[in-house]
């Protein structure tokens, strides 16, 4: 997560899109053809949503006209398609509070303090925002933010501490290497002696272990001990039984999970964590607030990327009437319209 940035002036735009996955990106294109500007918010540090975070290397075979691509390739292609419309991205932040302004527009603020004012807000948030998976042990939340962390905000918090890092990916290994020189002691806990992190990082970690500059424990965290919000030790379950590990700073990397987050409090009609919409424009129960892609539901809904594209196109038609109430919309094709060619930069 980035440091909160306070913007003094709200960003004024046509559409704020929550979620920079495939549906959010295609919204930029459809809105752009109609002359509408989009700002996108995403809690991830990258563009592409689940396609980029969950399955960047995995194949997708059901995008019309694109017989095969990976999650990352689809993201790259959508970015290329949206490029003429210069989308603005606000990453590493979660949409937090939504309220209606006196003039009927929306005011939306994020966890990083960015504020938007726009007539249209589009929720294209997939299965929710990606947040760190927390340790499901009793008392874990008491330590969170003081001695248990899921990300590093300030390296100084770890100086002269008995640090334990849990995980086997790049985040875990990178922080082991970065914090080891500062820490009083460094221990890496991972469930098996194989790591998905970059081989170079793994090699450097193993070198530190052989120099006895740090410890590697193959096992899993089975218990947390401490007083109040101060962690003092862990019980680790290893193949040789349980061991006690002194620890006053625990940094855990168990990947990310998706949760609805603050959107759940926005007064929307929810059905099993999905947002009910009508199927003419995929508008929610609140005018000017739309939901498209995996997060919306209606009779017959299919959670396919192609359905999200269709929803984006129809939604933008309605969004136009809200953003430009005085202007008559004329329907044109990209094949033949010189006006659209100009917008696309191909005229």
């Amino acid at each position: 997560m980035s440091e909160p940035v306070k913007t003094s002036h709200p960003i004024e735009t046509d559409m704020v899109v929550i979620g920079a996955g495939p549906c959010g990106l295609f919204t930029v294109f459809e809105a752009g053809l109609l002359g509408l500007e989009c700002h996108l918010i995403d809690n991830l540090d990258k563009i592409g949503g689940q396609c980029a975070e969950l399955y960047p290397e995995k194949p997708i075979y059901d995008i019309p006209g694109l017989p095969f691509c990976t999650g990352q390739e689809l993201t790259d292609r959508l970015m290329e398609q949206a490029k003429p419309f210069k989308p603005a991205f606000h990453l590493n932040q979660q949409a937090e509070a939504l309220s209606r302004l006196d003039d009927g527009r929306w005011r939306l603020s994020t966890s990083a303090g960015t504020v938007f004012q726009a007539p249209v807000v589009v929720i294209a948030a997939g299965a929710g925002s990606f947040v760190p998976r927390r340790i499901p042990l009793a008392g874990a939340e008491d330590y969170e933010g003081t001695s248990l962390f899921y990300a590093v905000r300030r390296m100084e918090d770890f100086r002269h501490r008995n640090v334990v890092v849990a995980g086997g990916g790049d985040s875990a290994l990178d922080w082991v290497l970065n914090l080891q020189p500062l820490a009083a002691s460094m221990t890496l806990v991972h469930r098996r002696d194989e790591f998905r992190a970059a081989p170079d990082s793994v090699g450097r970690m193993r070198a530190l272990v052989s120099e006895e500059a740090m410890k590697l424990v193959i096992g899993q965290i089975a218990g947390l001990h401490g007083e109040g919000d101060a962690l003092s030790g862990l019980t680790l379950k290893t193949t040789d039984g349980e061991i006690e590990q002194p620890c006053d700073r625990l940094l855990a990397f168990y990947g990310l999970k998706m949760e609805l987050g603050p959107i759940a409090e926005w007064g929307l009609n929810l059905e099993r964590n999905l947002i009910s919409v009508e199927t003419e424009a995929f508008e929610t129960n609140q005018p000017g607030l739309f939901a498209i892609g995996d997060i919306c539901t209606y009779p017959g809904k299919l959670k396919l990327i192609l359905s999200g594209f269709h929803e984006a196109a129809l939604m933008c038609q309605k969004a136009f009437t809200i953003c430009r109430p005085e202007t008559k919309l004329v329907f044109r094709y990209t094949t033949s319209s010189t006006e659209l060619h100009k917008k696309l930069g191909v005229a």
Partner: peptide, 11 residues
């Protein structure tokens, strides 16, 4: 599968 199990708890 093993790599994803790394992200599970109580494995």
């Amino acid at each position: 599968e093993n790599m994803m199990l790394d992200e599970a708890f109580e494995v």
